[in-house]
Computed example of a mutant assay.
Amino acid sequence: MERDLISHVAHGDHPIAAPISGDNLDRLLTRAKLPPRARILDLGCGEGQWLLRALALYPDATADGVDLSESGLSAAAEEAGRLGVSDRLRLHRVPAADHTAAEPYDLVLSVGATHAFGGLEPTLRAVHDHVRPSSGLALVGEAFWEQPPSPELLTEFGAEPGEYADLAGTVERMEAAGFATVYGHTSPLTDWDEYEWSWTGTLTRWALDHPGPDGDAALAAAREHRDLWLNGYRGFLGFVTLLLRPLTR
């Protein structure tokens, strides 16, 4: 069973695809205070939940979503049609690092998608290139270590020692890329648990309803993920989403 399909199924009951509740997502987008006719970009949009909520909050805004997931973009297009915002949403199936645009954006998002660029620093450089100078904003979500991880946890998680910093270090990394922090949200453990129980539980239910090779693969993936979470990074790995404004170039 392809990884893309596993992720699509697992996020069925938590399409935000990050350890953030819907209320906290809306609070972050509202705090952006976007101008009339804002242009919004999501680099690594997945199923487009952040963009769809942004278009609901800002009725005259337009948005571009960039992702490689065919199933994710299809789901985003379908939901945009259901919500009546298809005319304000453009979806692009290209690598996030390859997206180009004739104009800068008032808000650029990249939440939990730094892997698409090879890490936080190259993600921030790409985001900075797309943000409207001086007045634009970025919304970037990244993992950090709540507690120092053991070598065993790093190995199990597949992370390099310096891949994630602590919370202070993560803020410093983002600001070192040419941004000032104007707001932020640190996901509480309740948001993490809701996300992880949804991911593993939704995938498990799907697996039990689809006996056979795909169901077996999905069930194995759910159990492996749950074990890594409950016996590994729960309470160690945090997630912060920062609202950033570019410094004068």
Score class of each variant (00 low, 15 high):
Thr170Ser: 09
Val66Asp: 04
Phe179Ala: 01
Ala97Thr: 13
Gly84Arg: 04
Pro133Leu: 09
Val127Glu: 00
Leu89Phe: 11
Ala97Lys: 15
Leu89Asp: 04
Ala168Pro: 00
Ser110Ala: 05
Pro149Trp: 00
His130Met: 08
Pro133His: 09
Ala77Pro: 02
Val66Met: 04
Gly81Tyr: 08
Leu51Thr: 10
Glu70Ala: 14
Asp64Ala: 15
Gly65Trp: 10
Val85Leu: 11
Ser150Arg: 00
Ser69Glu: 10
Phe157Gly: 03
His115Met: 06
Gly81Cys: 13
Leu167Phe: 10
Ala176Cys: 03
Ala159Arg: 12
Glu163Met: 14
Gly112Tyr: 02
Leu57Lys: 03
Gly81Pro: 06
Gly158Phe: 04
Pro133Gly: 06
Ala113Lys: 02
Val85Trp: 06
Val94Leu: 05
Pro161Gly: 05
Ser74Glu: 10
Ala97Asp: 12
Pro133Cys: 07
Thr123Asn: 15
Ala102Thr: 15
Trp145Ser: 01
Arg125Ile: 01
Pro59Arg: 09
Gly169Ser: 05
Ser110Glu: 08
Arg53Thr: 15
Leu137Trp: 04
Met174Ser: 04
Phe144Trp: 05
Glu156Trp: 08
Glu142Pro: 01
Ser135Val: 02
Leu109Arg: 07
Pro122Val: 03
Pro149Ile: 01
Gln147Arg: 13
Val66Thr: 08
Pro104Val: 04
Glu172Ile: 08
Gly84Phe: 11
Ala63Cys: 09
Val127Gly: 01
